[in-house]
Nucleic acid binder design. Structure first.
Lengths: 222, 222
DNA sequence: GTCTATAAAGCGATAGAC
DNA sequence: GTCTATCGCTTTATAGAC
């Protein structure tokens, strides 16, 4: 019976891992799954708002409408909960950006592809996904050990951007004297920083994305 | 006697506040002042490296060659220590940037002024000042209450950049269709992010600053 | 001024009732 | 599967010796 139970748990864990990160199909969710997701979403919200150091398990439980002790039925530890939030954050943005770029017509210019990528990343991080927002704020805050275990997901996303920029350069849309690594870090830095200042209502995501792209490609000089 | 003691303490605190943040005159430092500075510098180093959540007073004491309990002779609380590190970080960068820009010849173009500002900020944050580095990493991590109490210092620095950019626009060096607020945030975002990826040796600060300025003014398009 | 010992509190984690 | 009670560790902060 112990064996069966363990196997069932493993299967469930795998199913979870392959399930979409957000906006899960509203039906056919077992109660247990629903609660787990509710806790994860609550954790993302609280972490995004209060930061890593200032968030207690009791805050998360409260936000999720349950109790601190109950969280341990779904997660081994606070760290496991944090890491799952982080992972969902990156993979969500990554998938959204890749899907959007791949959906563009074959002849689309690299500049347009990169602009679309900027807009999608921004939109996902600033309004669409609590996990993406949480990841953005949290990643620099968590202890190095946690960051180490998550770094491969980040690297994969960084590599995707590297390829985007290299493609643009090969196509002659980026000058040869530009250091692509610095450009990538500079661009992602500007994008990531938006989470620290963006307030809904004032400027649209599209406007911000458009100016970011214009500045980077054309510059601001008269 | 209680009155005298309190007055003395206030005078000392004021002297501290006006003293240069870093590289203090090697002579004429009272032992008490020296220890206080040693603890502050140690705190900045540890906070910059391990982040807010992962830093204990005992880590700082250890780095400073003293004991956790001893810190309370110089600081009221962990928070006061953190806030002083943060404050020294911003004011240090601010002063350095302003001094550098003001030292430029009167006829210097706005583009050159902004490039100098970028370079100074980068240099100060990445290599010159532990306080600046600590502030960069810490500010987004500390509880909202601490951030609130520090926000005016940040705002003052942000306003300085706003004026730099407005000057450039008035002089016709920045196009009229550019939203200066977004540009400022984008630029400071790219600059602030360097602390997350910069490794000494590979590229010089000057190279990074130069490409940042080139990208922002001229763009990367071929 | 500096160190040691310890108090006080907060929080992650576990056990067990239901 | 969920809640309550509580343990035990960690860490900030204080008291007092030197």
């Amino acid at each position: 019976m112990g064996r069966v139970a363990r196997r069932t748990a493993a299967v469930k864990a795998e199913a979870r891992r392959q399930a979409p990160a957000e906006a899960p199909e509203p039906v056919a969710l077992r109660k247990s799954e629903a609660t787990r997701l509710r806790i994860l979403a609550a954790a993302a919200r609280v972490f995004a708002q209060r930061g890593y150091a200032d968030t207690r398990l009791s805050d998360i439980a409260n936000e999720a409408g349950t109790f601190a002790g109950s969280i341990y039925y779904y997660f081994e530890s606070r760290e496991e909960l944090v890491e799952e939030v982080l992972r969902l954050g990156v993979t969500g943005v990554f998938d959204a950006v890749r899907d959007r770029v791949e959906a563009l017509a074959p002849g689309t210019s690299h500049r347009e592809r990169i602009t679309a990528a900027i807009e999608t990343h921004l939109s996902f991080t600033l309004v669409q996904s609590v996990f993406a927002a949480a990841n953005q704020r949290l990643f620099a805050q968590v202890p190095g050990e946690i960051r180490q275990r998550q770094i491969h997901v980040h690297r994969a996303y960084g590599n995707y951007w590297r390829k985007l920029l290299e493609g643009a350069r090969r196509a002659g849309e980026i000058r040869r004297d530009i250091d692509l690594s610095v450009l990538r870090l500079q661009l992602l830095g500007a994008i990531n920083w938006t989470v620290e200042w963006y307030k809904p209502g004032k400027r649209s995501i599209e406007q911000i994305a458009a100016q970011l792209a214009t500045t980077v490609f054309d510059g601001v000089a008269a």
